[in-house]
Design a protein around this nucleic acid. Structure first.
Length: 639
DNA sequence: TTTAATGGTAAGGGTAATCAAATGTG
DNA sequence: ACACATTTGATTACCCTTACCATTAA
């Protein structure tokens, strides 16, 4: 909730090589390399220094109650050729009790000088609790921590923590520490790398083991492996470690694989008899009756046992994604449900992170929802319509989707525009502020009325989009090649007027209008459609229009940017036609040789203009560049 | 000897990506 | 009927937490 924003801005001058990162709660962590302040008393200490910034404004502060003021980074303009940078921060009032605890008996600090301020997060991240009591204790003290899938931000932080640890000790490969060192030798490794992560230590530990175990993420099991696995299972039972070693797979991997191949398993379509049995068993084990909605508290292992012909996962999947819904009188999911989900249900929650969505509540009493789990996966298919959904902060993504779900299905196409902050920006992925809206444009031909890339008022660039559209950029926009074939910056040479209007019949014309935000480059800023016109507002530096033509599909860049594009909005007969306000603004593209379209990835509607309030989580300084082995590393390394 | 911290295992609920069959569409 | 695109159901590789056990240091 950013309702209490105080317009306090502070300019900091950074000292050399200090890095800011931000944790999942929006706290800013100041990372100071070891040798910078090499006093720090205890000479032996080699811990990296992490400081959670807690800036206090004079008068907002009331030390009496434990309310405090949190600051978050909102902008980081980086001036080139200058060591310094500016950090603009906004102050946010914290409600007391949320994270604060003045309890002096908290987990003791071992390193008093450095980490004593980490009371909130560290109590969690520095505790190896696994028992119910441990958790209850912490919960009772008012602590909260994150569960579930790790976000990209968390992984990034973890990686940078690891990298820093390695650097400090001159170690190259984290696997050395994790798999070769004795406990003694790697003392405090896990504690160090858990800093800033609001997760229990054991969760960090688990994740790290998985990440760096080369026998994990091996990929699909071959038939030979399956055979071998069956044999090994006979011989070694549930000794997964031994079986794993013999197979060159991690213990958890072979364990999971075995779960899928219960001895007498049917595959493929369920028979009516099987379905009947499944329902019967589920209701019996959960003491419910036919027609009741049952989505939790089911022991699927037991269910599978009783059903006999299916594995636990098959049973669960069948039940949650189909059978329970069918039996309790569910209705079909419609396009309106899509809109309802995105524009109302989720939006009303006003949560900052997807992880805070309670799908159980959301799914309640919604007859076309098959189960909370199913609804969640529905959300996933919706958000994948946004090509760069993974990089977008949740609120930004959500806002952008509000347009996407209402757009006529034909407005979606396999189009990708990749945004970038500026032409010469570092390769860091800066797509934080960009809301993709996809416009079916295929740029098959680019011509310029005069060769001089300049500011001639009459310059016209035509993007021939095949059957449907032609883009004309007026008067002095131009496309600047980026070096990647088919990828351009859309650029203005002088102060251009914005927004632009894009009319779609049959020529799409970008027309300049009022005041610019950037003299050089512009970004599409909003897109609205009424019957005939598509209006695009533009501002902010840096946009790449990447075209994806049939020929380009073999291009590696094109490929990678296209991933996850399969399920773009479907055409819906829409019986209640009048419900949806959007009409067919954009005629469906004939597939006459069109292949794929081009995609524009644009920042969001005008309400979303990246003013400072909207910039947050991703506006952190670049961290180190340690790659995530899970994502990056498919080949073998050390073993 | 106890006890707390740390490190570890198996089980099982879960997610997300992929494959394949079914269905829709011009 | 067809050629195809899209949707949906099924599968599976991988993720995460829980419950519990083992070892070690204090």
């Amino acid at each position: 909730m950013n309702t209490g924003d105080v317009p306090a801005t502070v300019t900091l001058e950074s000292i050399n090589s200090v890095t800011f990162t931000q944790d999942t709660d929006g706290n800013i962590i100041l990372h100071c390399p070891q040798n910078d302040g090499k006093d720090l008393g205890s000479g032996g200490t080699t811990e990296p220094v992490h400081k959670r910034l807690r800036l206090s404004s004079e008068d907002g502060e009331d030390p009496q109650d434990s309310s405090s003021t949190e600051y978050s980074v909102v902008t980081l303009p980086i001036t080139e050729g200058d060591e310094s940078f500016e950090v603009t921060m906004t102050a946010t009032e914290m409600r007391d009790g949320e994270l604060e605890s003045n309890d002096p008996s908290e987990i003791p600090d071992k390193d008093s000088s450095v980490q004593k301020k980490d009371k909130d997060v560290s109590a969690v991240s520095q505790a190896w609790f696994t028992t119910k009591e441990d958790k209850d204790t912490l919960v009772n003290k008012g602590h909260k921590w994150k569960q579930g899938m790790w976000s990209k931000e968390e992984i990034d932080l973890l990686m940078s923590n690891i990298e820093r640890y390695l650097k400090n000790r001159g170690i190259q490969d984290p696997a050395e520490i994790i798999f070769e060192m004795s406990k003694e030798e790697r003392k405090d490794f896990y504690r160090s790398i858990a800093c800033g992560l609001n997760r229990p230590l054991f969760a960090v530990y688990r994740r790290v083991l998985r990440m760096y175990d080369n026998r994990n993420h091996v990929g699909k099991y071959t038939d030979e492996e399956i055979d071998k696995l069956k044999g090994l299972r006979e011989k070694h039972g549930n000794d997964w470690a031994t079986i794993g070693t013999a197979l060159g797979r991690s213990a958890s991997s072979v364990k999971d694989r075995c779960r899928l191949m219960k001895d007498t398993c049917n595959t493929g379509k369920w028979t009516e008899e099987e379905e009947r049995r499944l329902a019967e068993v589920v209701h019996e084990l959960t003491c419910t009756e036919a027609g009741d909605v049952v989505t939790q508290g089911v022991s699927w292992a037991s269910v599978a046992e009783l059903v006999g012909s299916r594995s636990e996962k098959q049973c669960r999947s069948k039940w949650l994604n189909y059978l329970n819904w069918k039996q309790s009188g569910g209705t079909e999911w419609t396009k309106e449900d899509d809109i309802n989900l995105v524009r109302s249900r989720i939006a009303e929650l006003d949560v900052e992170d997807e992880n805070y969505i309670n799908w159980d509540i959301l799914a309640g009493g919604w007859s076309s929802v098959r189960s909370p789990q199913w609804l969640r996966s529905k959300w996933w298919t919706i958000k994948r319509q946004v090509a760069n959904h993974k990089e977008l902060p949740f609120p930004v993504l959500l806002k952008g989707l509000q347009d996407v779900v209402e757009a006529p299905p034909s407005a979606m196409n396999k189009v990708v525009v990749v945004g970038s902050r500026s032409a010469n920006a570092s390769p860091s992925p800066i797509t934080a502020l960009q809301i993709p809206v996809q416009i079916p444009v295929q740029i098959t031909h680019v011509s310029s009325s005069d060769g001089a890339s300049g500011t001639s008022d009459s310059e016209t660039i035509t993007l021939n989009s095949g059957a449907l559209q032609t883009f004309e950029l007026l008067p002095s926009f131009h496309l600047q090649p980026t070096g990647t074939p088919g990828t351009y910056f859309l650029q203005t040479g002088t102060n251009q007027s914005l927004p632009l209007t894009l009319s779609a019949n049959p020529t799409v014309t970008l027309t300049a209008a009022a005041s610019p935000s950037s003299p050089d480059q512009i970004i599409l800023h909003s897109l609205t459609t009424d019957n005939e016109n598509v209006t695009v507002q533009m501002s902010h530096p840096g946009i790449i229009i990447q075209t994806v033509t049939s020929e380009d599909l073999s291009d590696p860049l094109g490929q990678s940017e296209l991933e996850g594009e399969q399920e773009l909005a479907k055409e819906e007969p829409s019986q209640e036609g009048e419900k949806v306000s959007s009409s067919k603004a954009i005629p469906k593209m004939k597939s006459s040789g069109m292949g794929e379209g081009a995609v524009l990835m644009v920042p969001s509607p005008s309400s979303f203009i990246p003013t400072n309030e909207d910039i947050s989580a991703d506006s952190v300084l670049p961290l180190g560049t340690l790659t995530d082995p899970i994502l990056e590393n498919q080949e073998e390394g050390s073993d």
